[in-house]
Each structure stands twice: as C-alpha cells, then as structure tokens.
Design a protein around this nucleic acid. Structure first.
Lengths: 106, 106
DNA sequence: ATGATAGGTGACCTATTGGTCACATATCAA
DNA sequence: TTGATATGTGACCAATAGGTCACCTATCAT
C-alpha cells in the first residue's frame, strides 16, 4: 500500500490515471503525446511507478503496449486507510453541529 | 490537494497521523518520543509538511504546541478524487460477476 | 534572575526522484 | 530484407526530500 501512496503523490501520475480513466487501454505513445511538456521517457518512468503500485496493468500487443487502469488498489486504500479518518470526519461534523445547536440555544 | 497527496506519501507521516488518531492533541515532544528511530528534528519536519497540507492543526499553549488531527482534507481527497475510481471499481466487479455468470452458464 | 524545558531555524549532507538522452530491441509493412 | 514504428535500458544530471546538528528563542518553576 506504500507503493500506492507514493505513486499517487506525483501530479503527473495522477494525470496519467485520469487520462486512462477517460480512455482506457491507451498505448505508451498515445499517453506520451498527451504530455507534451515531457518526453516519452519521463512518461515511461511514471508508468513504471504506476505499474509497480498495481494501479496500471500493461498488456503487450505486438509491438505496442496497452495500459489499463486498475482501480482496486485505490479502493483498498480507501477502505483500509481513508475510511478510518472519514469516520472521524463525520464525528467531527456531528460535534460541530452539536456545538452550534448548543450555542444557538444559549 | 496536491499537498495532501504528497504529505500522505511518506510512511512516517502516516504513522504520525495514526498516532494522533489514537491520541489527539499530543505535543511535539510526546510525538517525537514515539519515533525513537528519528530525532525530534526529523519529526518536526514531517509535522511541517502535515501542517502545510492542513492535515494537522497546531495549537500553541504556553511553551508547548498541541497537534490536532484534521481529517477534512482526507475526506476531500476521498470525495473529489478517490470516489471517482471507486465507482469504476464497482463497475469492474459487476463486469467480473457478469463474466463469471456468463462463463458458468456456458 | 536563572536554570531547565519546549519548541524553532538554518546550514548541511545524502539518498531519492523526476527528467533527458544515446542507444538498443522487437515488431510490422512494403 | 529493409526501413519505419513502438517500446525498453542504462547512464547521467539537477532538484528535491529525509534527516541531523549547532544554535537560538520563548516560557515556566524556583
């Protein structure tokens, strides 16, 4: 799960995920073209990080490689880590609401 | 939101959040004692990153500083970013289920 | 006032990371 | 087979990040 957090830390990598979300199964070259501010090699390095985190699944097809988004690790992070804090968020909201209500009554 | 992702990328920082989750309002020294593998300065740098991301709220009290967990940015990341992929996860499960069902029927 | 305690700052070092490039490999089309 | 296309690798570089330390400031207790 550490790899997932680290992979998500970079804005370019999140953009890559977004691009795959919009159109799944793009090739490396297709993706690289979307990131004109960077060379193909930069994009490939980011893809390597994303693949290592299991967020992107590569499928070789002849001389091309299609990249597929895998949302499962994100879902796991959400369930095993984020949900814990989200619960606290909810209780914080409840506490705030109670505070406001109490203040209004006073 | 970029700051939040970057802050969450480091395992030590996630541990700090966990420590505050377990006991909110700890002081810098208290926290530093929990991370014996690191000096107080290392912990303070991490705290700086967490504060900048709004994940930790500092409250000065005399010569001590109490750190409070703020789950709101995490909740925002969950809602504005993760939920999008979680939805795809669900649809992927549905697709998988349909595939299995279809295979079983064949 | 004075010492002890809690925290802060800036310089500094090292390892990692983001990024590029030259070059190599594999596949396809003619 | 030969040239073009798609991707891969390793060296390399600059910037950033994690971490430590010497030193400083502010507050508290006596």
């Amino acid at each position: 799960m550490d790899a997932v957090f680290r992979a998500l830390a970079d804005p370019t990598r999140r953009e890559i995920l977004d691009a795959l979300f919009a159109e799944d199964g793009q090739t490396v070259t297709q993706l690289a073209e979307r990131f004109a501010e960077m060379t193909r090699f930069g994009v490939m390095k980011h893809l390597g990080v994303l693949e290592e985190a299991g967020l992107v699944i590569p499928v070789r097809q002849g001389r091309t490689k299609r990249l597929y988004l895998n949302p499962v690790p994100i879902e796991q992070v959400a369930n095993r880590w984020i949900s814990k804090y989200a619960a606290r968020f909810t209780s914080a909201l409840v506490a705030l609401d109670q505070h406001i209500t109490a203040t209004e009554e006073a």
